[in-house]
Amino acid sequence: MAPVPSSSSAPEGARRRGGQPRWRRWNRALHRDLGYLAVGLTLAYAVSGLAVNHVSDWNPDWTLGRETVRFEPMPVADRDTLVAELVRVLDLPEPKDAFRPAPERVQLFYDDWNVEADVRAGTAVIERPRRRAVLADLNALHLNRLRGAWTLVADAYAAVLAFLAVSGMLILRGRQGLAGRGRWLVLAGLAVPLVAIAWIHVFGSEALGR
């Protein structure tokens, strides 16, 4: 089969079938395959990102089960007396330890749960923290709490993301590519961090957080 004539000045060896430069072929193939590879971590980090963005509204790693129990108020006494009374009244097992942060408040500690009582008010709150099964693991990966070897994985993923961003710009040519609408979309995307940074320098980071 005769080679397809080309109007470009690229050397013949740097071309593939259809007149596409070889680097574009590699760019497209790497973008495709690294994109497939990045799907898992991208989704994991996206879910975790949404979760940790709202850390001021909730704890993305834990849920805190709270049950309030009422009982007949009792007079303030010494710690051991109050602990024994609370164990009896609330039908609790013997705690591994107890502490009084204030004369009327008693904390009872158990393995992975605790009770805080106000004997004067006659209320006790039973707290049972529970780790969010999947989300806490995703957050640990996203925030690199593992350190060590995971740092290498996270660095590699960051490099892959940077490559995907650059290679993605170069996949299409002409009006759909950087020469056309692609350029304006890239500039619009760049404007987001640039405007934010300018805002921080002019008004301070707290102004942006409002």
Binding site: D61, D112, E127, R131
Partner: peptide, 21 residues
Amino acid sequence: FQTLRFKVKDGEIVFPQDVKG
């Protein structure tokens, strides 16, 4: 009736909720 707060920089150390007790 005495406690002491141990404060760390946000994100540098994250204490889990089950550290209580």
